[in-house]
Design a binder for these strands. Structure first.
Length: 660
RNA sequence: GCGCCCAUAGCUCAGCUGGAUAGAGCAACGGAUUUCUAAUCCGUAGGCCGGGGGUUCGAAUCCCUCUGGGCGUACCA
């Protein structure tokens, strides 16, 4: 049991005498924000005193009087309006830290009630190469997957790939009409991706052409309205409603203007190339024809099915390359196509249960309190991703026996998931837990969604390459800088090792930069910052780890043997105590990650841990320590630190290297 | 129109169910080096937590309102 749980247990015994609902008060025992107040603090006396109508300070004193904690902490102090400050005894900390020295799990207990969890993450589209938009779901989902698994929950990582939608029709149409045969022979997936982009571009071109006149009309309308309002504005000085009106009109005008610019750009992109213009002219119905290909595929058309069976494995193999590089694995990869045979039945069931009704020829679930319906069959008879998601839920409950289903998906789909979960509950899945682990957008330095300079989405592969290349430079510089006592250069890493370190550092930097942010926030993608050699980066922790490995290498010390020897950790310097306390808090960090699905709690913990270690390492000699017992104690602390950091990083999907 | 989210140091961001003097990192400035890997450590400075009101012992956090931004709004997934 971790320190915090132990304390809470002790408090609960006392608090339950004072209130029938001790839980929220027990939860108010937490690590101190400021070390000056001790190691932990209990803030429960104030609200409890309010509930009971007594004096908070005297209640705090009463709680302190009843608590039996003399074995683990110094006498408790009541401070301020009724805070209870808790300072752990060194003996107790020492006992705890020595307990985990030889514990393979570093004091992390297995879940007492393992859940059956399905984590749905990454979910790329087979039709197009993975891009920066897939990064967060992939990295975040995988980190959660690892933490759940480490804590012994039964987890299924499922990659719900998009292999069945409209985009696939575009590939089929492209393949049949626009194929570059030699390109396809040399790089099938690349050519398919090109075809997808091309068909998609041509069809948005026609859409844009069709939309433009109406868009211009709308813009005109708002422009006129705005001008009219501006003329009258003198007569409406101080009229709030009028001002608001004018503002909205201006905003609308600007918005439509933006739309015009966007459409014109799409059109210009095609028309500036005679080749593209020609293609566009020869395929005016391209969008419709692509949709037809999708429909044929869904209807079981022989040729399209054959092509689908040919393309999907190829595309998956290409995506797998990125997953291998990112060290990401799934237990199942059930794409949308997997659920296709179940969709008709889902709609039927929803209808017979009276949950779904026809509206405008479409089949919808209307959920009380929600304006937007949940559309499960389109007016043309095709199913939607809502239908697939419902079929997926049924599958995950019935076949996988999942009690918790986690979706790691962009926050923009919040409404979809709200409706989906609501529908699932109406459908009868009331005893299952559905969680939308939503996340924000990755922005460029212009604070707009991250794009290349020309406005294209950034491919994931090139993102990784760029980071690794940059890391390689840093690795080179750093290794070249190493010198011996006489000042002669002594680089330690050969070329192969440098390349491996660069890969670890570069990929780690990207993952860490993503995970350290609160997932719900947007964040600015900044390669320089994530690969900075100073500060809160993966590199900082990887470096701390490598330093420890260096100690054992130079000292020729076998870590296994060390752990099994008679020595133990003792405190001779405050930094040793601080580091130990920090190492003992690993499980608190993991609890936090699990309860909120927030890996940034773990990154924060690891940064603090690496920092505590660096401070300790600055203050305390290890190999050079003369006193054998102290030396062993410090070596044990180093070993433990390295294991905590490596384990923590591994749970985030970030690798370490012995030397860098 | 309706709905959801955001605004915290010069910059990038934390801040868990309301808790003590609002924290990191970067950048700035000042220190530490016969380096057990300085990709390090220690310190200084930097804030009306967007504005206003409310709830209470106590608010960055909860409620209302205004301002400024983002996103979503039935047949794309």
């Amino acid at each position: 049991m971790n320190t915090l749980s132990e304390l809470r247990d002790r408090f609960e015994k006392v608090l339950s005498e004072l209130t029938p609902t001790p839980d929220p008060f027990v939860a108010m025992i937490k690590p101190t924000q400021d070390a000056a107040f001790g190691d932990f603090q209990a803030n429960c006396a104030m609200p409890l005193a309010k509930q009971r109508g007594t004096n908070p300070r005297s209640l705090a004193a009463e709680i302190v009087g009843k608590l039996d904690v003399t074995d683990l902490c110094h006498p408790l102090e009541v401070a301020g309006p009724g805070f209870i400050n808790i300072r752990l005894k060194d003996e107790w900390l020492i006992e705890r830290i020595n307990n985990i020295v030889s514990d393979a799990r570093l004091g992390i207990e297995l879940a007492t009630k393992p859940k059956r969890v399905v984590i749905d993450y990454s979910a790329p589209n087979v039709a197009k190469p993975m891009h920066v938009g897939h990064l967060r779901s992939t990295v975040l989902g995988n980190a959660l997957y690892r933490v759940f698994k480490f804590c012994d929950h039964q987890v299924v990582g499922d990659n719900h790939i998009g292999d069945w939608g409209t985009q696939f029709g575009m590939i089929l149409f492209g393949y049949k009409n626009l194929l570059d045969v030699s390109a396809f022979e040399s790089n099938a997936v690349g050519e398919l991706a090109r075809l997808y982009r091309l068909v998609s571009q041509l069809s948005t071109y026609h859409d844009a052409k069709a939309e433009l006149p109406e868009t211009i009309k709308q813009h005109e309308q708002y422009r006129e309205q705005r001008e009219g309002l501006e003329k009258e504005s003198d007569q409406h000085q101080g009229d709030k409603d009028f001002a608001k009106d004018l503002k909205t009109t201006r905003a609308n005008e600007a918005q439509w203007n933006q739309q015009i610019v966007a459409l014109k750009r799409i059109i210009a992109d095609i028309e500036s190339s005679s080749l593209l213009k020609n293609l566009a002219d020869t395929h005016p119905q391209i969008a419709e024809l692509a949709r037809l290909e999708t429909a044929k595929l869904h209807a079981g058309d022989e040729e399209n099915t054959r092509l689908w069976n040919q393309f999907v494995p190829q595309c998956l193999a290409a995506i797998q390359g990125i997953y291998d590089r990112l060290d990401i694995r799934f237990d199942t990869t059930h794409g949308e196509s997997y659920y296709n045979p179940m969709l008709a039945n889902v709609v039927e069931e929803m209808q017979t249960k009276g949950l779904a009704v026809e509206s405008d020829k479409a089949i919808c679930v209307f959920i009380p309190g929600n304006a937007a319906p949940f559309l499960i069959r389109k007016s043309d008879g095709a199913f939607t991703y809502a239908t697939t998601d419902l079929a997926t839920i049924r599958y995950r409950v019935k076949d996988l026996n999942a009690d918790t289903m986690i979706y790691v998906v962009d926050t923009r789909q919040s409404e979809h998931f709200r409706l989906l979960f609501e529908t699932a509950r109406l459908w009868g899945y009331v005893d299952r837990q559905f969680v939308h682990v939503n996340f924000g957008t990755i922005l460029g330095k212009d604070n707009k969604p991250y794009k290349t300079r020309s406005g294209d989405t950034v491919g994931l592969e090139s993102l990784l390459d760029a980071a690794v290349a940059k890391a390689r430079q840093i690795v080179n510089e750093n290794d070249d800088r190493k010198k011996d006592d006489a000042g002669n250069p002594t680089p330690e890493l050969d070329d192969v090792t440098r390349a491996a370190v660069a890969e670890t550092v570069g990929i780690g930097a990207i993952k860490y930069a993503d995970l350290r942010h609160n997932r719900e926030s947007d964040y600015v993608y900044d390669e320089d910052k994530m690969l900075a050699t100073t500060g809160d980066t993966a590199t900082y922790m990887q470096y701390a780890y490598a330093r420890v490995c260096g100690i054992f290498r130079r000292g020729a010390i076998n870590r296994e043997t060390l752990r099994n020897e008679a020595g133990h950790i003792r405190f001779t310097h405050p930094s040793e105590r601080a580091l130990s306390l920090q190492l003992l808090r690993f499980s608190e960090a993991l609890d936090g990650v699990l309860s909120e699905c927030r890996p940034n709690i773990l990154t924060d913990y690891l940064f603090t841990t690496a920092n505590s270690f660096s401070t300790f390492y600055q203050e305390c000699k290890v190999l050079k320590e003369q006193d054998a017992a102290i030396r062993t104690s410090r070596l044990l602390l180093c070993d433990l630190t390295a294991r905590v950091i490596a384990t923590g990083l591994e749970l985030l999907g970030i690798k370490t290297c012995e030397q860098m």
